[in-house]
Structure formats: C-alpha cells, structure tokens
Amino acid sequence: MGKKVLITGATSGIGRSLAYTLAEEGYELYIVGRSDEKLAELKADLESRYTQTCVCYRVDFSRSEEVRSFLAQKLQVDILIHCAGIGKVGDFKTISVEEEQEILQVNINASVLLLKSFAQRFVAQGHGTIIVVCSTAAFYPHPFMNTYASSKAFLHHYSLGLGEEVRRYSKQVKVIAVSPGPTRTSFFNPQTKTKMVQSQTETKFEMSAEQVGESIAKALYSNRSSVTIGRRNQLMTLFLKCLPLKLRIRLVGNYIAKGV
C-alpha cells in the first residue's frame, strides 16, 4: 500500500490496537507515545511480525514544548490518527485543579496544535486524512467525569468545524471524528473499574480495543464527518437523546458515581 500513518497514543489501548491493524494492512507506521520503553517494545514486536519499519517519537502531550518540538520536524505522512488522551473519574472535590488542567492540556491544547498543523500540511500536499478519536462522552454531560467529557465535547466540535474549513480548500483532505463508547483498556484504574462493573452483564457493553481499532481502520474510507463506533453505542446515544436533559444527566451520573 505504501501509505504513511502517524498514530498518537500508540503504546496502549486503542492506539496500540490500531498499530497492529494498520501494519497488517501494509501501512508504514509512525508511532507516538510518552514512554521510551513502551515505544521500543511495540516497535520490536511490530517489526518482528511485519516487513515495514516502524518509526517512534517520544512526545508527552502534557508538555506544550514537546508537542511544538515534534511538530517542528515537519513529518510528512498521509494519515494522522489522534488517539492520545487522558481522563479521570471523580468529582469537583476529589479531582485537583492541577489534574483538570492536565486533562485540558492533553485533550484540548495539545490536540489543537497537532490537528491544526496537520490540516495545514495536508491541504498543502493536496491529500490526507485526519482521524480524531473522541468519545460518546462528548455527546452529553458526564458528572464525575466532567472535565474529560467536556474536553471530548470540545474535541468533537473542533474536529467537525475543522473538517468543514478544510473542505473549502481541498476535497482530498478529510477530517473524521470517531467516537467509541466504553472500551476494555487501561483508561480506568483497577479500583475504579471494579467499583463500576458490578456484574458480568455490564461488561458486555464494552468493546475490546481490537474491535474499536478495526472499526476506526474502516472509518478511514468513510466520507462521513462523524462516526460512532459500535451498534450498541449508536443505539444508546439515540436513546439518551430522547430523554429530558435532566434525566439524562442523572442516569449517566448515577452510573459513573459508582467508580468514585
């Protein structure tokens, strides 16, 4: 295939799954993570399985200077898949201002720097696809994950607006916001996970990182600006939209509060 894809947040969860899925499809991989050890492990495993080389970049998205330094390298790729993001479960008493600022820095400030830069590059080169991994949490308020959900709402809206702006310059450049729902990753710490998942039935609503990765890989060929990953997530989102806002917030808050 020969296409070059850059994946942020590639050393774990959805990003890691995508790296294997796209390597299998023949893409040249450029992976970004914040751990040298995890990047080296992933690179070694990918190159032992596939013929393509894998290029690694260590970037901590909580540090603007590292993001700017990475962007200054002017890396030329065909596809950007932005998976990097962080979140935390808690309320306004338990989550510190510093923790909230870090979530906003990673999920909003660093993301804007990255997406704006690659949108400009793709328009200049005349082609390119940007996939932004948002979340179904972007579609309505999430008490006890308030800052995370709010940051994803910003990212979702920003991606849609950026896509329309880009479209006026080039029909060959796409921006697609993809929104997975609950996914079996290390996003939640084990204690939070144990509190929130009270029965085996509840885990059935989660998709595996591999399932989400495969769905996102398929979204590369979509002409839609927004894609909700998973049939259950699509139905749940439609159902919740039918409820009064106050009830919607209460139901979501009651579920997440179990993990506090």
Score class of each variant (00 low, 15 high):
Leu18His: 11
Thr183Ser: 07
Lys74Tyr: 06
Arg34Leu: 06
Pro141Glu: 08
Val252Ser: 14
Ser117Val: 06
Asn146Pro: 00
Leu42Ile: 09
Ser48Phe: 06
Asp91Gln: 05
Gly90Tyr: 00
Gln125Pro: 15
Ala119Asp: 05
Lys88Glu: 13
Glu164Asp: 12
Ser117Asp: 15
Met1Phe: 08
Lys241Gly: 00
Gln76Asp: 14
Arg231Ile: 15
Leu115Ala: 08
Gly181Phe: 01
Gln52Trp: 05
Glu164Ile: 07
Gln105Trp: 07
Ala219Lys: 02
Ile14Cys: 09
Thr136Lys: 01
Met145Thr: 01
Ala124Gln: 13
Gly126Asp: 07
Glu24Lys: 15
Gln73Lys: 14
Thr94Asp: 03
Arg49Lys: 12
Cys134Lys: 01
Lys74Glu: 12
Ala138His: 00
Asn233Asp: 05
Val67Thr: 12
Glu37Gly: 12
Val89Arg: 04
Gly13Ala: 05
Asn223Phe: 06
Arg58Trp: 02
Gly26Pro: 11
Gly90Leu: 07
Thr129Cys: 15
Arg68Trp: 08
Arg250Tyr: 13
Glu99Tyr: 10
Gly87Met: 00
Lys43Leu: 05
Leu162Cys: 14
Ser135Ile: 01
Glu210Gly: 07
Lys258Gly: 13
Glu202Ala: 11
Ala219Glu: 00
Tyr158Pro: 02
Asn109Gln: 13
Glu98Lys: 15
Val59Phe: 04
Leu243Ile: 10
Leu22Ala: 03
Gln105Met: 13
Arg248Pro: 04
Glu210Lys: 12
Gly85Arg: 00
Val123Lys: 12
Ile103Met: 10
Leu80Asp: 10
Ala137Trp: 01
His156Lys: 10
Leu46Glu: 02
Ser48Cys: 06
Glu28Leu: 01
Arg49Asn: 06
Ser170Pro: 03
Arg224Val: 03
Gln101Lys: 14
Lys116Trp: 08
Phe188Cys: 09
Tyr148Met: 00
Asn189Arg: 06
Asp36Phe: 14
Cys83Ile: 04
Ser135Tyr: 05
Gln125Asn: 13
Glu206Arg: 11
Leu160Ser: 02
Tyr169Lys: 12
Ala257Lys: 14
His156Leu: 12
Leu114Glu: 05
Val77Met: 09
Thr147Phe: 02
Val5Pro: 11
Arg63Phe: 05
Phe239Tyr: 12
Ser48Glu: 12
Arg168His: 14
Ser150Arg: 04
Lys195Gly: 01
Thr8Asp: 09
Arg250Cys: 13
Phe205Ala: 13
Gly85Trp: 10
Gly259His: 03
Leu220Asn: 09
Tyr148Ile: 00
Leu29Cys: 07
Gln234Trp: 12
Leu22Arg: 04
Glu206Tyr: 15
Arg184Asp: 07
Met1Trp: 02
Thr21Ala: 12
Ser111Thr: 13
Gly163Pro: 09
Ser35Lys: 15
Gly259Ser: 15
Pro182Gly: 12
Val178Ala: 11
Val5Tyr: 06
Ser64Met: 12
Leu80Val: 14
Thr53Ala: 07
Ile108Leu: 00
Phe70Val: 05
Val59Glu: 01
Ala219Gln: 04
Arg250His: 15
Lys258Arg: 15
Met1Val: 14
Arg34Met: 09
Val197Trp: 11
Leu245Met: 14
